[in-house]
Nucleic acid binder design. Structure first.
Lengths: 195, 195
DNA sequence: ATCATAAGTGAATGAACATTCATTTAAATT
DNA sequence: AATTTAAATGAATGTTCATTCACTTATGAT
Protein backbone atom coordinates (compact mmCIF):
# COMPACT_ATOMS: atom_id res chain seq x y z
CA UNK A 1 0.00 0.00 0.00
CA UNK A 2 0.81 3.63 0.20
CA UNK A 3 0.15 5.80 3.24
CA UNK A 4 -1.51 9.19 3.30
CA UNK A 5 0.68 12.24 3.30
CA UNK A 6 -0.33 13.95 6.54
CA UNK A 7 1.46 17.09 5.51
CA UNK A 8 -0.88 17.33 2.55
CA UNK A 9 -4.05 17.17 4.61
CA UNK A 10 -2.67 19.85 6.96
CA UNK A 11 -1.97 22.10 4.01
CA UNK A 12 -5.46 21.62 2.60
CA UNK A 13 -7.04 22.40 5.96
CA UNK A 14 -4.86 25.46 6.57
CA UNK A 15 -5.36 26.94 3.14
CA UNK A 16 -9.11 26.31 3.33
CA UNK A 17 -9.36 28.15 6.63
CA UNK A 18 -7.22 31.00 5.34
CA UNK A 19 -9.35 31.40 2.24
CA UNK A 20 -12.57 31.41 4.22
CA UNK A 21 -11.30 34.00 6.66
CA UNK A 22 -9.97 36.22 3.88
CA UNK A 23 -12.71 35.83 1.28
CA UNK A 24 -15.71 34.27 3.00
CA UNK A 25 -17.32 30.89 2.42
CA UNK A 26 -17.98 31.65 -1.24
CA UNK A 27 -14.31 32.49 -1.70
CA UNK A 28 -13.29 28.96 -0.78
CA UNK A 29 -13.86 26.93 -3.92
CA UNK A 30 -12.58 23.40 -4.29
CA UNK A 31 -10.55 24.10 -7.41
CA UNK A 32 -9.14 27.32 -6.03
CA UNK A 33 -8.31 25.46 -2.83
CA UNK A 34 -6.60 22.70 -4.80
CA UNK A 35 -4.44 25.25 -6.56
CA UNK A 36 -3.58 27.01 -3.30
CA UNK A 37 -2.56 23.72 -1.68
CA UNK A 38 -0.70 22.47 -4.76
CA UNK A 39 -2.77 19.33 -5.16
CA UNK A 40 -5.29 18.07 -7.64
CA UNK A 41 -8.94 18.82 -6.90
CA UNK A 42 -9.50 15.07 -6.79
CA UNK A 43 -6.96 14.72 -3.99
CA UNK A 44 -9.10 16.79 -1.65
CA UNK A 45 -11.82 14.18 -2.07
CA UNK A 46 -9.50 11.50 -0.74
CA UNK A 47 -9.30 13.31 2.56
CA UNK A 48 -12.82 14.72 2.71
CA UNK A 49 -16.10 13.35 1.44
CA UNK A 50 -17.12 16.69 -0.02
CA UNK A 51 -17.06 20.42 0.60
CA UNK A 52 -19.50 20.27 3.49
CA UNK A 53 -17.54 17.48 5.13
CA UNK A 54 -14.39 19.57 4.88
CA UNK A 55 -16.11 22.51 6.55
CA UNK A 56 -17.37 20.32 9.37
CA UNK A 57 -13.90 18.90 9.92
CA UNK A 58 -12.50 22.40 10.12
CA UNK A 59 -15.12 23.41 12.64
CA UNK A 60 -14.51 20.40 14.81
CA UNK A 61 -10.77 20.93 14.70
CA UNK A 62 -11.22 24.49 15.91
CA UNK A 63 -13.41 23.31 18.76
CA UNK A 64 -10.73 20.86 19.80
CA UNK A 65 -7.92 23.37 19.61
CA UNK A 66 -9.99 25.81 21.59
CA UNK A 67 -10.87 23.47 24.41
CA UNK A 68 -7.27 22.30 24.64
CA UNK A 69 -5.94 25.83 24.93
CA UNK A 70 -8.73 26.92 27.24
CA UNK A 71 -8.08 24.09 29.69
CA UNK A 72 -4.30 24.67 29.88
CA UNK A 73 -3.41 25.04 33.56
CA UNK A 74 -7.06 25.08 34.49
CA UNK A 75 -8.69 23.20 37.34
CA UNK A 76 -12.17 23.46 38.80
CA UNK A 77 -10.51 23.74 42.21
CA UNK A 78 -8.97 27.11 41.44
CA UNK A 79 -10.46 30.04 43.33
CA UNK A 80 -13.20 31.64 41.30
CA UNK A 81 -11.28 34.81 40.56
CA UNK A 82 -8.10 32.94 39.58
CA UNK A 83 -10.00 30.46 37.48
CA UNK A 84 -11.98 33.03 35.53
CA UNK A 85 -8.89 35.13 34.96
CA UNK A 86 -7.05 32.09 33.65
CA UNK A 87 -9.98 31.44 31.31
CA UNK A 88 -9.76 34.97 29.97
CA UNK A 89 -6.03 34.68 29.46
CA UNK A 90 -6.31 31.31 27.77
CA UNK A 91 -9.02 32.56 25.46
CA UNK A 92 -6.95 35.59 24.57
CA UNK A 93 -4.02 33.28 23.91
CA UNK A 94 -6.17 31.19 21.62
CA UNK A 95 -7.15 34.26 19.63
CA UNK A 96 -3.53 35.40 19.40
CA UNK A 97 -2.01 32.05 18.53
CA UNK A 98 -4.73 30.81 16.19
CA UNK A 99 -6.23 33.94 14.68
CA UNK A 100 -7.46 32.12 11.58
CA UNK A 101 -9.15 29.46 13.67
CA UNK A 102 -10.81 32.11 15.82
CA UNK A 103 -12.08 34.12 12.88
CA UNK A 104 -13.25 31.01 11.08
CA UNK A 105 -15.09 29.93 14.20
CA UNK A 106 -16.87 33.26 14.57
CA UNK A 107 -17.88 33.23 10.94
CA UNK A 108 -19.11 29.66 11.01
CA UNK A 109 -20.99 30.12 14.26
CA UNK A 110 -22.95 33.05 12.81
CA UNK A 111 -23.80 31.28 9.57
CA UNK A 112 -26.66 28.90 8.83
CA UNK A 113 -24.14 26.18 7.98
CA UNK A 114 -23.95 25.47 11.68
CA UNK A 115 -27.43 23.97 11.52
CA UNK A 116 -26.43 21.32 9.00
CA UNK A 117 -23.18 20.39 10.70
CA UNK A 118 -23.12 17.62 13.26
CA UNK A 119 -21.24 19.39 16.00
CA UNK A 120 -19.36 17.10 18.33
CA UNK A 121 -19.47 18.38 21.89
CA UNK A 122 -16.27 18.66 23.83
CA UNK A 123 -17.27 16.87 27.00
CA UNK A 124 -14.06 17.40 28.88
CA UNK A 125 -14.41 21.13 28.55
CA UNK A 126 -18.05 21.23 29.51
CA UNK A 127 -17.66 19.15 32.69
CA UNK A 128 -14.69 21.22 33.83
CA UNK A 129 -16.67 24.42 33.46
CA UNK A 130 -19.66 22.97 35.24
CA UNK A 131 -17.58 21.85 38.20
CA UNK A 132 -15.84 25.19 38.37
CA UNK A 133 -19.16 27.02 38.52
CA UNK A 134 -20.51 24.67 41.19
CA UNK A 135 -17.46 25.19 43.37
CA UNK A 136 -17.69 28.94 43.09
CA UNK A 137 -21.32 28.78 44.18
CA UNK A 138 -20.60 26.42 47.08
CA UNK A 139 -17.81 28.68 48.38
CA UNK A 140 -20.01 31.73 48.10
CA UNK A 141 -17.59 33.41 45.68
CA UNK A 142 -20.44 34.33 43.38
CA UNK A 143 -24.12 34.74 44.09
CA UNK A 144 -26.68 32.20 43.01
CA UNK A 145 -27.78 32.81 39.43
CA UNK A 146 -29.00 31.07 36.29
CA UNK A 147 -26.23 29.58 34.14
CA UNK A 148 -27.11 31.88 31.24
CA UNK A 149 -26.81 34.89 33.54
CA UNK A 150 -23.42 33.71 34.69
CA UNK A 151 -22.10 33.14 31.16
CA UNK A 152 -23.37 36.49 29.95
CA UNK A 153 -21.79 38.43 32.77
CA UNK A 154 -18.56 36.44 32.91
CA UNK A 155 -17.69 36.30 29.21
CA UNK A 156 -19.88 38.84 27.44
CA UNK A 157 -17.65 41.80 28.25
CA UNK A 158 -14.54 39.83 27.33
CA UNK A 159 -15.71 39.00 23.83
CA UNK A 160 -17.13 42.46 23.31
CA UNK A 161 -13.72 43.86 24.11
CA UNK A 162 -12.12 41.49 21.62
CA UNK A 163 -14.56 42.44 18.88
CA UNK A 164 -14.02 46.09 19.59
CA UNK A 165 -10.28 45.68 19.08
CA UNK A 166 -10.79 43.57 15.98
CA UNK A 167 -12.74 46.40 14.34
CA UNK A 168 -9.86 48.45 12.89
CA UNK A 169 -7.76 45.53 11.87
CA UNK A 170 -7.34 42.59 9.70
CA UNK A 171 -4.86 41.78 12.41
CA UNK A 172 -3.75 38.63 10.60
CA UNK A 173 -0.09 37.94 10.97
CA UNK A 174 1.09 40.68 13.28
CA UNK A 175 0.18 40.29 16.92
CA UNK A 176 -3.22 41.25 18.17
CA UNK A 177 -2.85 44.34 20.35
CA UNK A 178 -5.03 44.58 23.41
CA UNK A 179 -3.69 46.43 26.43
CA UNK A 180 -3.33 44.09 29.42
CA UNK A 181 -4.24 47.01 31.68
CA UNK A 182 -7.60 47.45 29.98
CA UNK A 183 -8.28 43.73 30.07
CA UNK A 184 -7.56 43.72 33.79
CA UNK A 185 -9.78 46.74 34.38
CA UNK A 186 -12.71 45.11 32.67
CA UNK A 187 -12.04 41.88 34.51
CA UNK A 188 -12.19 43.59 37.92
CA UNK A 189 -15.53 45.17 37.08
CA UNK A 190 -16.86 41.85 35.86
CA UNK A 191 -15.90 40.19 39.14
CA UNK A 192 -17.85 42.93 40.91
CA UNK A 193 -20.94 42.20 38.83
CA UNK A 194 -20.83 38.54 39.75
CA UNK A 195 -20.77 39.03 43.49
CA UNK B 1 -42.79 57.05 -18.66
CA UNK B 2 -43.46 54.25 -16.29
CA UNK B 3 -42.68 54.41 -12.59
CA UNK B 4 -40.88 51.80 -10.52
CA UNK B 5 -42.99 49.36 -8.59
CA UNK B 6 -41.86 49.97 -5.00
CA UNK B 7 -43.57 46.83 -3.87
CA UNK B 8 -41.29 44.89 -6.18
CA UNK B 9 -38.10 46.28 -4.70
CA UNK B 10 -39.36 45.55 -1.18
CA UNK B 11 -40.07 41.97 -2.17
CA UNK B 12 -36.62 41.53 -3.68
CA UNK B 13 -34.95 42.95 -0.58
CA UNK B 14 -37.04 40.85 1.81
CA UNK B 15 -36.56 37.61 -0.07
CA UNK B 16 -32.83 38.25 -0.40
CA UNK B 17 -32.47 38.75 3.33
CA UNK B 18 -34.57 35.70 4.06
CA UNK B 19 -32.47 33.53 1.76
CA UNK B 20 -29.23 34.74 3.28
CA UNK B 21 -30.42 34.12 6.81
CA UNK B 22 -31.72 30.67 5.96
CA UNK B 23 -29.03 29.45 3.57
CA UNK B 24 -26.04 31.74 3.94
CA UNK B 25 -24.53 34.13 1.42
CA UNK B 26 -23.87 31.32 -1.08
CA UNK B 27 -27.53 30.35 -0.86
CA UNK B 28 -28.62 33.71 -2.21
CA UNK B 29 -28.16 33.44 -5.96
CA UNK B 30 -29.55 36.04 -8.35
CA UNK B 31 -31.63 33.59 -10.37
CA UNK B 32 -32.90 31.82 -7.28
CA UNK B 33 -33.75 35.20 -5.79
CA UNK B 34 -35.57 36.22 -8.96
CA UNK B 35 -37.68 33.10 -8.78
CA UNK B 36 -38.43 33.65 -5.07
CA UNK B 37 -39.53 37.23 -5.73
CA UNK B 38 -41.49 36.35 -8.88
CA UNK B 39 -39.51 38.64 -11.14
CA UNK B 40 -37.09 38.17 -13.98
CA UNK B 41 -33.38 38.07 -13.06
CA UNK B 42 -32.94 41.14 -15.23
CA UNK B 43 -35.43 43.08 -13.13
CA UNK B 44 -33.18 42.86 -10.10
CA UNK B 45 -30.54 44.70 -12.09
CA UNK B 46 -32.90 47.63 -12.57
CA UNK B 47 -32.98 48.20 -8.83
CA UNK B 48 -29.41 47.17 -7.98
CA UNK B 49 -26.19 47.55 -9.92
CA UNK B 50 -25.11 44.01 -9.11
CA UNK B 51 -25.07 41.39 -6.35
CA UNK B 52 -22.58 43.26 -4.21
CA UNK B 53 -24.57 46.46 -4.52
CA UNK B 54 -27.68 44.62 -3.37
CA UNK B 55 -25.85 43.28 -0.32
CA UNK B 56 -24.59 46.73 0.59
CA UNK B 57 -28.08 48.18 0.28
CA UNK B 58 -29.40 45.48 2.58
CA UNK B 59 -26.71 46.19 5.12
CA UNK B 60 -27.35 49.91 5.08
CA UNK B 61 -31.08 49.40 5.41
CA UNK B 62 -30.52 47.28 8.51
CA UNK B 63 -28.30 49.92 10.02
CA UNK B 64 -31.00 52.52 9.45
CA UNK B 65 -33.78 50.39 10.88
CA UNK B 66 -31.63 49.62 13.87
CA UNK B 67 -30.72 53.17 14.71
CA UNK B 68 -34.33 54.27 14.27
CA UNK B 69 -35.61 51.61 16.66
CA UNK B 70 -32.77 52.13 19.09
CA UNK B 71 -33.40 55.87 19.35
CA UNK B 72 -37.16 55.53 19.93
CA UNK B 73 -37.96 57.45 23.10
CA UNK B 74 -34.31 57.96 23.83
CA UNK B 75 -32.63 61.17 24.92
CA UNK B 76 -29.11 61.83 26.16
CA UNK B 77 -30.69 63.64 29.09
CA UNK B 78 -32.22 60.50 30.54
CA UNK B 79 -30.67 59.29 33.78
CA UNK B 80 -27.95 56.77 33.04
CA UNK B 81 -29.86 53.81 34.41
CA UNK B 82 -33.06 54.73 32.58
CA UNK B 83 -31.22 55.46 29.36
CA UNK B 84 -29.27 52.23 29.31
CA UNK B 85 -32.35 50.21 30.18
CA UNK B 86 -34.23 51.84 27.34
CA UNK B 87 -31.37 50.95 25.02
CA UNK B 88 -31.58 47.34 26.09
CA UNK B 89 -35.32 47.28 25.58
CA UNK B 90 -35.11 48.94 22.20
CA UNK B 91 -32.42 46.56 21.05
CA UNK B 92 -34.48 43.60 22.20
CA UNK B 93 -37.45 45.04 20.36
CA UNK B 94 -35.36 45.35 17.21
CA UNK B 95 -34.39 41.69 17.44
CA UNK B 96 -38.00 40.66 18.02
CA UNK B 97 -39.57 42.82 15.35
CA UNK B 98 -36.91 42.39 12.68
CA UNK B 99 -35.40 38.99 13.32
CA UNK B 100 -34.24 38.57 9.71
CA UNK B 101 -32.56 41.94 9.76
CA UNK B 102 -30.83 41.11 13.02
CA UNK B 103 -29.57 37.74 11.85
CA UNK B 104 -28.48 39.15 8.51
CA UNK B 105 -26.58 41.87 10.33
CA UNK B 106 -24.77 39.43 12.59
CA UNK B 107 -23.81 37.28 9.64
CA UNK B 108 -22.63 40.18 7.54
CA UNK B 109 -20.69 41.73 10.39
CA UNK B 110 -18.72 38.51 10.92
CA UNK B 111 -17.94 38.01 7.25
CA UNK B 112 -15.09 39.46 5.19
CA UNK B 113 -17.64 41.13 2.90
CA UNK B 114 -17.81 43.93 5.42
CA UNK B 115 -14.35 45.07 4.31
CA UNK B 116 -15.41 45.65 0.73
CA UNK B 117 -18.64 47.43 1.57
CA UNK B 118 -18.70 51.17 1.99
CA UNK B 119 -20.53 51.36 5.28
CA UNK B 120 -22.37 54.60 5.86
CA UNK B 121 -22.25 55.67 9.47
CA UNK B 122 -25.42 56.68 11.23
CA UNK B 123 -24.34 60.00 12.66
CA UNK B 124 -27.50 60.73 14.56
CA UNK B 125 -27.14 57.54 16.53
CA UNK B 126 -23.45 58.02 17.26
CA UNK B 127 -23.79 61.57 18.55
CA UNK B 128 -26.72 60.63 20.79
CA UNK B 129 -24.71 57.84 22.38
CA UNK B 130 -21.70 60.04 22.86
CA UNK B 131 -23.74 62.74 24.60
CA UNK B 132 -25.44 60.17 26.77
CA UNK B 133 -22.10 58.78 27.92
CA UNK B 134 -20.71 62.25 28.62
CA UNK B 135 -23.71 63.20 30.74
CA UNK B 136 -23.44 60.02 32.76
CA UNK B 137 -19.78 60.76 33.46
CA UNK B 138 -20.48 64.39 34.36
CA UNK B 139 -23.21 63.39 36.82
CA UNK B 140 -20.98 60.76 38.38
CA UNK B 141 -23.44 58.00 37.51
CA UNK B 142 -20.63 55.85 36.18
CA UNK B 143 -16.94 55.92 36.92
CA UNK B 144 -14.43 57.28 34.46
CA UNK B 145 -13.38 54.64 31.94
CA UNK B 146 -12.22 54.14 28.37
CA UNK B 147 -15.05 54.04 25.81
CA UNK B 148 -14.22 50.46 24.86
CA UNK B 149 -14.44 49.45 28.52
CA UNK B 150 -17.81 51.10 28.80
CA UNK B 151 -19.21 49.45 25.68
CA UNK B 152 -17.95 46.04 26.69
CA UNK B 153 -19.45 46.20 30.15
CA UNK B 154 -22.69 47.88 29.13
CA UNK B 155 -23.64 45.78 26.10
CA UNK B 156 -21.46 42.67 26.17
CA UNK B 157 -23.66 40.80 28.65
CA UNK B 158 -26.80 41.83 26.80
CA UNK B 159 -25.71 40.39 23.48
CA UNK B 160 -24.27 37.30 25.14
CA UNK B 161 -27.66 36.69 26.66
CA UNK B 162 -29.33 37.10 23.29
CA UNK B 163 -26.93 34.67 21.61
CA UNK B 164 -27.44 32.20 24.41
CA UNK B 165 -31.19 32.24 23.82
CA UNK B 166 -30.77 32.05 20.08
CA UNK B 167 -28.86 28.78 20.42
CA UNK B 168 -31.74 26.28 20.55
CA UNK B 169 -33.92 28.01 18.05
CA UNK B 170 -34.38 29.10 14.56
CA UNK B 171 -36.81 31.42 16.25
CA UNK B 172 -37.91 32.89 12.93
CA UNK B 173 -41.59 33.70 12.84
CA UNK B 174 -42.73 32.91 16.33
CA UNK B 175 -41.75 35.33 19.05
CA UNK B 176 -38.30 35.29 20.57
CA UNK B 177 -38.61 34.13 24.18
CA UNK B 178 -36.35 35.74 26.74
CA UNK B 179 -37.61 36.08 30.29
CA UNK B 180 -37.92 39.76 31.27
CA UNK B 181 -36.95 38.79 34.81
CA UNK B 182 -33.62 37.39 33.64
CA UNK B 183 -32.96 40.41 31.48
CA UNK B 184 -33.61 42.67 34.46
CA UNK B 185 -31.36 40.59 36.70
CA UNK B 186 -28.47 40.85 34.29
CA UNK B 187 -29.14 44.54 33.83
CA UNK B 188 -28.91 45.23 37.56
CA UNK B 189 -25.58 43.43 37.78
CA UNK B 190 -24.28 45.35 34.78
CA UNK B 191 -25.19 48.64 36.42
CA UNK B 192 -23.18 47.53 39.44
CA UNK B 193 -20.16 46.82 37.28
CA UNK B 194 -20.26 50.31 35.80
CA UNK B 195 -20.26 52.17 39.09
C1' DA C 1 12.48 -7.51 -7.63
C1' DT C 2 7.59 -7.98 -7.82
C1' DC C 3 3.07 -7.30 -6.45
C1' DA C 4 -0.91 -5.27 -4.43
C1' DT C 5 -3.09 -1.36 -2.99
C1' DA C 6 -4.25 3.02 -1.95
C1' DA C 7 -2.56 7.82 -2.87
C1' DG C 8 -2.66 10.99 -6.20
C1' DT C 9 -3.80 12.96 -10.74
C1' DG C 10 -5.67 16.06 -15.02
C1' DA C 11 -9.17 16.37 -17.74
C1' DA C 12 -14.01 16.14 -18.22
C1' DT C 13 -19.04 16.77 -16.84
C1' DG C 14 -23.12 18.95 -16.03
C1' DA C 15 -25.21 22.14 -13.08
C1' DA C 16 -25.46 26.68 -11.26
C1' DC C 17 -23.67 31.06 -11.42
C1' DA C 18 -23.84 36.54 -12.37
C1' DT C 19 -24.76 39.37 -15.84
C1' DT C 20 -26.45 41.16 -20.46
C1' DC C 21 -29.46 42.14 -24.33
C1' DA C 22 -33.00 42.42 -27.80
C1' DT C 23 -37.59 42.86 -27.11
C1' DT C 24 -42.15 43.68 -25.03
C1' DT C 25 -45.20 46.03 -21.81
C1' DA C 26 -47.30 49.50 -19.12
C1' DA C 27 -47.95 54.02 -17.54
C1' DA C 28 -47.47 58.89 -17.68
C1' DT C 29 -47.49 62.94 -20.91
C1' DT C 30 -49.06 65.04 -25.04
C1' DA D 1 -55.64 58.20 -29.14
C1' DA D 2 -50.83 58.63 -29.94
C1' DT D 3 -46.30 59.07 -28.29
C1' DT D 4 -42.59 58.50 -25.30
C1' DT D 5 -39.84 56.37 -21.99
C1' DA D 6 -38.40 53.52 -18.57
C1' DA D 7 -39.87 49.22 -16.32
C1' DA D 8 -39.90 44.55 -17.05
C1' DT D 9 -38.83 40.38 -19.35
C1' DG D 10 -37.01 35.38 -20.97
C1' DA D 11 -33.59 33.56 -23.20
C1' DA D 12 -28.81 33.47 -23.91
C1' DT D 13 -23.73 34.04 -22.64
C1' DG D 14 -19.64 32.77 -20.83
C1' DT D 15 -17.73 31.54 -16.53
C1' DT D 16 -17.05 29.10 -12.43
C1' DC D 17 -18.56 25.63 -9.57
C1' DA D 18 -18.37 20.77 -7.01
C1' DT D 19 -17.63 16.39 -8.13
C1' DT D 20 -16.19 12.16 -10.79
C1' DC D 21 -13.41 8.95 -13.34
C1' DA D 22 -10.08 6.45 -15.95
C1' DC D 23 -5.60 6.47 -15.17
C1' DT D 24 -0.68 6.84 -13.19
C1' DT D 25 2.48 6.74 -9.34
C1' DA D 26 4.54 5.68 -5.03
C1' DT D 27 5.15 2.70 -1.20
C1' DG D 28 4.81 -1.11 2.24
C1' DA D 29 4.57 -6.09 2.16
C1' DT D 30 5.95 -10.43 0.10
Amino acid sequence: MRSKNEHKERLIRDKAMEMIVKEGFDGMGMQKLAKAANVSPATIYIYFKNREDLLNHLYNEVQNTFSEVALKGFSPDLSFEDGLWLQWQNRLRFINEFPYQYQFYEQFRNSPLINHSDVQLIMDFKTNMKLFLMNALKNGEIKKMEPEVFWSLAYGPFYSLIKFHLQEKTMMGRHFKLSPAILKTVFKQVIKSLQ
